[in-house]
């Protein structure tokens, strides 16, 4: 029966490259853009709500 663990032992990558040490600058920039979209749209509607009160 094929399991994840079996196949993992087959892959022979250097054990040093831990995912948390990888270069994720682009990822960080991308999620910040996502965060800004959320913030801007939320405050946009909050403004509309206050204006219409």
């Amino acid at each position: 029966m094929e399991t994840q663990r079996n196949t993992q032992t087959e892959t022979k990558k250097s054990p040093q490259t831990q995912p948390h040490q990888e270069n994720l600058k682009g990822t960080f920039a991308a999620v910040i853009i996502v965060g800004l979209i959320i913030l801007l749209s939320w405050f946009g509607i909050f403004g509309l709500f206050l204006e219409r009160a």
Binding site: Q18, P19, H20, E22, L24, K25, T27, F28, V31, I32, G35, I38, L39
Partner: peptide, 18 residues
Amino acid sequence: MHLHRYEKIWLILGAGGL
């Protein structure tokens, strides 16, 4: 369970925003 440093910052910012 290891969080990448950037992911930690992102989740703190996200939770802070919420």
